[in-house]
Amino acid sequence: MAVVNIDRVLFVAAVLFLLGLTGVLTRKNILFMLISIEIMLNAAGLAFVAAGSKWHQPDGQAMFLFILAMAAAEVSVGLALVMQIWHQHKTMDVEDLNKLKDE
């Protein structure tokens, strides 16, 4: 198989992760934030798989599977929350959801 430098793969993973992070930081819409979090999780999985490939071990892929499971659970709960928020506040603006603010 072809030779790919591991740092390249990790760099791509970092770029994806940071794009996701930028999304979390810049978007006010809570749905977009969830999407961005998915991107970040995916990037983390990519890093795991790359590491597993480097050592020719299945552990990286196993980890990716767990991340996948976690992402699925998180997305289902997160989306349910998004729906509740929409129903109750009629808004997607995360800045409006600051009930935990210290008065």
Binding site: L21, V24, L25, K28, M33, V94, E95, L97, N98, K99, L100, K101, D102
Partner: peptide
């Protein structure tokens, strides 16, 4: 700093 803004915490 505890302003309830999620994005602020992420920053």
């Amino acid at each position: 700093s505890q302003n309830g803004s999620l994005r602020w915490y992420a920053v």
